Amino acid sequence: MSLRIVVSSVSSDAHMWNLVYLQLLLEEAGHEVTNLGVCPPDGTVMDACRGADRPDLLVLSTVNGHGHLDGLRLIRALRRDAELAALPVVIGGKLGVRGADAEEGRRLLDAGFDAVFNESDQSAGRTLAAFGDFLAGLAQAAAVREPLVAGAPR
């Protein structure tokens, strides 16, 4: 099943290549992607996730090492918002300026992220495989939730 996915950096991250890579990777897998680009204010990210075209997933990617700060602030705002509280949200990339910090990843999960893909936790190939597994599980869950179309065979 195809997912609707919003891809974005965090508010302080001006790196675009990671977002383009994710967009191409996700589109090649058959998903519909909206790329918000670099340095979006938290409100812009939240607004892109509201309404009738609400995505199935928000993917935050960061390269500058401030994901543990900006991501924490954004996920807390998302989880406080009644319309967005249940939206699946993941974050990945370079989450801290000091390298891999398991505690930062744990704080992000505890704050409400559904998954954290810390670039220093494992090789890039294993990180992409874990992200792919997460997407497959989310797509499978979304397929179960799909409403039946009147007259369509089961």
Rank of each mutant, 00 (worst) to 15 (best):
T127W: 00
S9N: 10
D53R: 11
G51A: 04
Q23S: 13
H31E: 11
R145Q: 14
R54M: 08
V7K: 03
E27L: 02
V59F: 13
V63L: 15
R80I: 02
L135M: 07
Q122W: 06
L109G: 11
D114I: 08
L24Y: 11
R73K: 12
F117Y: 13
V33E: 05
D13M: 00
V20M: 15
A142K: 15
P147Q: 11
H31D: 12
G93R: 03
D121Y: 07
R106I: 00
S123Q: 01
V45T: 11
S120I: 09
G93C: 07
W17A: 15
T62L: 02
C39T: 11
V33P: 06
L72P: 03
G112F: 06
A129L: 13
M1L: 12
A14P: 13
L72K: 06
R73S: 13
A111W: 04
L72R: 10
D42H: 13
A48V: 05
I5E: 02
L78Y: 02
E119C: 12
F134E: 01
V116L: 03
L22F: 14
V7G: 04
E32Y: 10
S11N: 11
E27C: 04
M16Y: 14
R76I: 08
E83I: 01
D133Y: 10
S2I: 00
V33N: 06
C39E: 10
E103A: 12
G132P: 02
M46G: 05
G93D: 00
V149D: 03
C49T: 01
H68F: 11
S9V: 05
G99N: 06
N18E: 09
S9C: 04
W17F: 15
A115R: 14
G30S: 07
L22P: 07
D121P: 04
R80P: 00
P88T: 10
E27A: 01
C49D: 00
L69E: 11
S2L: 00
L128H: 13
E83Q: 10
P55S: 03
P153C: 09
V97C: 03
S2W: 01
F117G: 08
V33D: 04
N35R: 08
Q140D: 14
Q23Y: 07
L24I: 14
C49W: 00
L78E: 01
R76Y: 02
A14R: 08
L22H: 15
R76G: 12
L72N: 09
L84E: 00
E28G: 15
A52C: 01
A142E: 11
A143H: 09
H31G: 12
R106G: 00
D47N: 09
M46P: 04
A14V: 05
P88E: 08
V7N: 02
L108N: 05
A48S: 11
V149Q: 12
R154Q: 12
R54E: 02
L60A: 03
S123H: 05
H66K: 10
R107T: 10
A130S: 14
V10Y: 03
L148P: 00
Q23E: 15
A85K: 11
L22E: 08
L25V: 06
N64S: 12
H15T: 11
P153R: 14
A139W: 05
R107F: 07
N64I: 06
G51H: 05
N118W: 14
S11C: 13
A150D: 10
P40R: 08
A111V: 06
D114H: 15
A52W: 04
G132N: 14
L84G: 02
G112H: 07
N64H: 01
T44I: 07
